[in-house]
């Protein structure tokens, strides 16, 4: 039925070789296309005209008291209302200082108490750590109150974890 001429058989083997060569070129590790570091997203709110609304801090400082490399994480950033703070998988608490306006406002301290959970993202991205916020403690010099809105800190972007009210 399919007794093809010799030319067709040559094409058959050429197709075989090219397909194998193509496969060998596409077998490297895929690029990691998703975030692989979990950070706490902190949002700032202010009570205005009977309701709480997003408020941008005029000249904010967020600095870690525990992690040397995050000592100047946000330093004098202007007009931002959302901040992403890293946690250390080696610890179970993290202390941060917050100053809404570095020129004159009082400094507050935020203490996050959390659990760490190992998470496999993919073979392309490897492993990462997620966190579960158990408690948050703050001073109230300038901050009115603090509330955990989502205890689970993952690599998913745009999920608010903590609300800070001024």
């Amino acid at each position: 039925m399919l007794n093809k001429p010799r030319q067709n058989k040559c094409w058959f083997f050429l197709a075989c070789v090219f397909t194998v060569l193509y496969s060998s070129c596409t077998s490297d590790r895929n690029p990691c296309l998703e975030p692989n570091i979990s950070k706490v997203q902190v949002s700032c709110y202010q009570f205005k005209s009977g309701e709480y609304s997003d408020t941008a801090l005029p000249n904010a400082i967020f600095a870690s008291l525990d992690i040397d490399s995050a000592r100047y994480w946000y330093w004098g950033v202007k007009a931002m209302s959302k901040f992403d703070l890293p946690l250390s998988p080696k610890k179970d608490t993290a202390r941060w200082i917050l100053q809404a306006d570095s020129a004159f406002s009082l400094i507050d301290t935020l203490t996050f108490v959390y659990e760490t959970k190992l998470k496999f993202i993919s073979n392309a991205c490897g492993y990462s750590h997620d966190y579960l916020i158990k408690q948050i403690i703050s001073t109230n010099r300038n901050i009115d109150s603090v509330r955990v809105s989502n205890h689970s800190v993952t690599t998913k972007a745009g999920i608010e974890n903590v609300k800070i009210y001024f």
């Binding site: 570091i37 950070k39 992690i67 490399s69 995050a70 890293p86 946690l87 250390s88 998988p89 080696k90 190992l118 490897g126 492993y127 990462s128 750590h129």
Partner: peptide, 14 residues
């Protein structure tokens, strides 16, 4: 075996 980076320069192996 794996290693993770917390984004702050800390490498954790397991």
């Amino acid at each position: 075996s794996y290693s993770t980076n917390d984004g702050l320069g800390t490498i954790i192996m397991g």
